[in-house]
Design a protein around this nucleic acid. Structure first.
Length: 316
DNA sequence: AAAGGCGGCAACCGCAATCAT
DNA sequence: AATGATTGCGGTTGCCGCCTT
């Protein structure tokens, strides 16, 4: 037996809203507010709509200062980086973009941003297969990576955004992003205040979380480095794959789709493979499991879940 | 010009969280 | 503490208009 419906569905109108319905709802809320009860609202106004439908219509369309379409580069970057860091928490993402609704952002991501990202990924993959994207090498046949190989521009951007969000002290964001359990916080080391705790968790755990979100790429289980006899450390194959995909996302975000390509049918079919990217739940599951384990991370690059900044220099 | 395919988007649905009693 | 009502959220659906053939 399912739960009781929130309204009498037989007497409720569905489908697109008429201008008359919009006007009634808008006028009433502007004059009297919602009265704290959406369910009762349609009867008061005299429209045959479900309360939930009224709420959605108001939030997504009728309330003041709503923006539709015309997403800026800045907004694209924020959406991408937040999606990578917290997954499909559209309401949280929307809260950071004034005038944008969660529904709008969700649609925008599903119909455009995701495809752009995939398009760039496919393009880069194809160019690698054709050998046109050779890795630069130094005289020893090894390339030295800067620190940004570990905390790359995407991650930096993510951290900047999170810091901004953090500074806004948005309680909703805090609730969703910052784990509440003290023991979880303890995993990231002692911090003196909530802001530091958030940043600490962001810096270490979100990077790992993001790493795990790299679709189709096996994230190194412990250390990405393979010690050589001469003492240098080489990245493992899977870590190289991971770095390559990160680079593609970096490129996408820095160029913001300037070179984006349209998808052919094959690519469209392969969008299926990208559905895992939607698996933010998986990311979040991984993340929470990570905390819930209440022990040293096996997925993190470092045994204590904290990136060792001394190990950032890697050689090919 | 007509038909079918496709993409974008508004709206719906169902579940989970929260609130009220 | 338990239960029902309400709200909030994310996933999904279906309509509509544009594009291609």
């Amino acid at each position: 037996m399912g739960r009781a419906p929130c309204c009498d569905k037989a007497n409720v109108k569905k489908g697109p809203w008429s201008p008359e319905e919009d006007a009634k709802l808008k006028d009433y809320i502007e004059k009297y507010g919602t009265g704290g009860n959406w369910i009762a609202l349609p009867q008061k106004i005299g429209i045959k709509r479900c309360g939930k439908s009224c709420r959605l219509r108001w939030l997504n369309y009728l309330r003041p200062n709503i923006k539709h379409g015309g997403f800026s580069e800045e907004e694209d970057n924020i959406i991408c980086s937040l999606y990578i860091s917290i997954g499909s928490r559209w309401s949280i993402i929307a809260a950071q973009l004034p005038g944008r609704t969660d529904n709008d952002i969700k649609n925008y991501w599903n119909t455009r941003l995701k495809k752009k990202l995939l398009g760039r990924r496919k393009q880069s993959h194809a160019s690698r297969l054709s050998g046109s994207n050779q890795e630069p090498k130094d005289g020893s046949g090894m390339e030295t990576l800067s620190n940004s190989a570990i905390l790359n521009p995407v991650q930096e951007k993510m951290m900047q955004n999170l810091q901004l969000l953090n500074e806004s002290s948005n309680p909703l964001l805090m609730q969703h992003v910052l784990p509440s359990s003290p023991q979880k916080i303890e995993l990231c080391g002692p911090s003196t205040n909530r802001h530091q705790q958030l940043y600490s968790i962001s810096n270490d755990m979100l990077v790992n979380q993001m790493n795990n979100s790299m679709n189709g790429i096996n994230i190194p289980s412990s250390s990405p480095h393979i010690p050589e006899s001469d003492g240098t450390k080489l990245p493992s194959m899977e870590f190289q794959q991971y770095l390559a995909f990160q680079a593609e996302i970096d490129e996408f975000l820095s160029n913001k789709g300037a070179n984006s390509i349209s998808l052919d049918q094959t690519q469209a079919n392969e969008i299926e493979c990208f559905k895992d990217m939607d698996g933010a739940k998986d990311m979040m599951t991984w993340w929470s499991n990570e905390f819930d384990a209440n022990s040293a991370s096996s997925n993190s690059w470092d045994s204590n879940g904290v990136v060792d900044h001394q190990q950032r220099e890697i050689k090919y």
